[in-house]
Design a protein around this nucleic acid. Structure first.
Length: 117
RNA sequence: UAAAGUAAUCGAAUAAUCGCGCCCUUAGGGGUGAGGAAAGUCCGUGCAUUCAAGGACAGGCAGCCGGAGAAACUUCCGGACGGUGUGAACCGGUGGAUAGGACCACAGAAAUGCGAACUGCUAACGGCUUUAUAAGUGCGAGCGAUGGUGCAACGGCGAGGUAAGAGCUCACCAGCGGUAUUGAGAGAUAUCGGCUAGGCAACCCCCUGCAGAAUGCAAGGUUAAAUUGAAGGUUAUAAAGGCUGUCCGCCAACUUCAGAAAAACCGCUAGAGAUUGGGAGUAAUUCCAAUACCAGACAGAUGAUUAUUUAGAAACAGAACACGGCUUAUGAGUUACUUUAUUUU
RNA sequence: UCCUCAGUAGCUCAAUGGCGGAGCAACCGGCUGUUAACCGGUAGGUUGUUGGUUCGAGUCCAACCUGGGGAG
């Protein structure tokens, strides 16, 4: 779990991010990016989504969310996020293909996705 | 040794580094953090709100006996009866078919008040043939033994009996009712009686018992903000609306539609609770004592990596108000008791 | 989290407890110079799964599986 100031909170913010339609895709994970920041002082907020349609069991969905979150957290800690910090918000959506990935593969995917922005 | 049955247990451990929710804090830090099913949502309960003057009808659930807990149950324990299995054991929605109705396809004479009309049996009785007795004749009549049908044919089987037959009579068996003994009871055993009652209630129904109804924490409450519309319907005699599903009956001023807003706090976790020890009871369960406080989020915490170990690679699976059950999913093992088969002594 | 509905042929749907059917699609043949339309025929189903009640279950009962819809 990320500290609170990095989390994307309410439904309005999610819808706003989706509406920008700036997305890239890799290895079953889709990354949505929001609008560019006006004030550079605020932090970029991040959401992690795994739909119930992706897999029925809660354990597997939680596992995928935790993996994505952990990868992002480690990148944040190394301060290796590059251009992504210019956006207001990011959403990572896990799909069916990403369910069986291990930590190393996932880290590679997240890193590549962020560099593409 | 092999194959089975039942019950119980376990539900990974340790260390390092980087992290998250909640609580406390002297601001350094400290404490604590998923399950046996948290699941399915199949029953039940607490809790909350709304409704209910009252009446009638409809509808719902349960169904062998005794006990246990208790808020309650479609729960649990022990037994009875029936069924399955060589057996240990397992399974059972197990009141009533003489209160009544429906249904029982095809086949069959007939499927429930048996007019048997197919295949048949019978010359006792009446009729006919015959001079009469005798004999013949299945026309009337009697029969339901025999053959075939079907899941099922109004008891089964043997003997007597008869014109042929038939519980018509008898023995045994099954079923029904009474009596006696026994048991706490379901029931069991014995004996006597009349002489026959199909299946289906997991179709309607009858009997007995139980329950105010509806909605579910997105219940519901507090605070803050907001509280709009040239909109529609209505003033009682009507229509519409509300009161439990329907009806009777009752209520009396609001109601319908569209739009806006939707943030924080409470509810929220100390409990029909947990662990350990000792009694009572065949058991379900219960009594006493001690110990500690042990998740409470709101885009939603319990994770990642590395090393070591069991078994080089751990199943099923993630709390969202709480609890009691049921059902289903589940890796590798461990323990106890029991059965069957084979071999050896 | 809670409430609710459905599952039958490739698709859309029927079927009182008694032989599972219709339309479209598919395949074969005919008609036509050819295709479509039309005419004739054929095949295709463990009735979502597993048990139970019953002589007999798509239908009745129970448990599960899968999919859909709704709730401030």
């Amino acid at each position: 779990m990320l500290p609170r100031q990095y989390r994307l909170k309410n439904k309005l913010a999610f819808n706003a991010t989706y509406r920008v339609k700036n997305s890239t895709h890799m290895g079953g994970v889709t990354l949505f990016a929001g609008i560019l920041k006006k004030d550079t002082g605020t932090d970029t907020r991040v959401g992690f989504v795994v739909s119930k349609k992706t897999h029925k069991r809660a354990v597997k969905r939680n596992r995928l969310k935790r993996l994505m979150r952990e990868c992002y957290r480690l990148l944040l800690k190394e301060n290796n996020l590059g251009n992504s910090q210019n956006y207001m918000s990011l959403i990572f959506v896990g799909g069916e293909n990403s369910l069986d990935k291990n930590f190393a593969e996932m880290q590679n995917i997240i890193k590549t996705l962020i560099q593409r922005l």
